[in-house]
Design a protein around this nucleic acid. Structure first.
Lengths: 154, 154
DNA sequence: TTCGTAATTTAGAATAATTCTAAATTGCTT
DNA sequence: AAGCAATTTAGAATTATTCTAAATTACGAA
């Protein structure tokens, strides 16, 4: 028996070895879904269609707002599982709160601390020279650039 | 009455408008002091002599270890005051824990998540091209690059 | 010196984000 | 339909940090 319409979220979950439960499907739709628009390509050129940056609290609130019964604990579990399976990427910009990004390609971020808001920066938009050699016994895992913003004037 | 030897920490504190209390002097010595070595230049060329990256918990432990009676609350207060006066810089590499850096010049970091360890990267060691324009009404406050490390092999 | 007062420190409570636990529920395979 | 492991969940626990209100301290004035 196949779900008639979960926007392919069940398939997406199965593809990464996660059981498509009601909660995971709903959270995946919120994170990756595109409302009523037709299914299709996930990208336009090199740009994700819907880049989202959410905290656990935010995602939970959004789910509750859509009358999806899901606990905060499950939201945390799910965010970490999605991250572990490469569906999400954790972004560290705030010591105190974790953000999760639906864009898992290499890229960077603008961050407005006053609003807690993140905006993606295409990787190629910031030309990077060579990095200095990492300490002995270590290799580079990722290069994360955060451009912190403040309001214009002062 | 002048303190015979606080390694100039009282003066350093006064210079930024902070009362040189026993606790602040002790924490400043731990953070900025150089043991028994003679006073002098804070830099060698462009390199800080003693770059330190500490969490509140770590600094508190270090103080207690030196028999400096100071509460954790005061350590937090002091770290924030020092940061506010430009003696320290907060580094965000871990959502969950704040690190404070005695190097306040523009520079970047290697971060080893397994050990929670930071290593400075000289600013000029990473050539940076132009940044894309920030969102309307915002200007760039800082550009922070974190090079995350993992053990060699695998 | 000694005072007076404002700044500072502090213990402990409070808060916030996140994780843990153990029990109830649910999704699949048989 | 049954069985069982995977998942969810409420609520407690943990961790980092901030707050509060009372005690202490630094420092200029007398």
């Amino acid at each position: 028996m196949v779900m008639i319409n979960d926007n392919g979220m069940s398939a997406k979950l199965k593809a990464v070895g996660l059981r498509p439960t009601r909660q995971r499907i709903a959270l995946a739709e919120i994170l990756f879904g595109r409302g009523d628009q037709p299914l299709g390509d996930q990208h336009l050129g090199d740009q994700h269609v819907s880049d989202r940056h959410v905290t656990a609290e935010q995602l939970h609130g959004e789910a509750i707002g859509r009358d999806v019964a899901v606990s905060l604990a499950t939201v945390y579990n799910t965010l970490h599982q999605f991250t572990g399976q490469g569906l999400l990427r954790e972004v560290v910009v705030d010591s105190g709160r974790s953000y999760f990004d639906t864009n898992v390609d290499a890229h960077h971020h603008f961050f407005d601390p006053s609003r807690g808001e993140l905006v993606d920066i295409n990787r190629d938009a910031i030309p990077l020279g060579d990095l200095p050699p990492p300490p002995e016994g270590m290799v580079v895992d990722s290069v994360d650039i955060v451009v912190r913003l403040k309001p214009t004037g002062r």
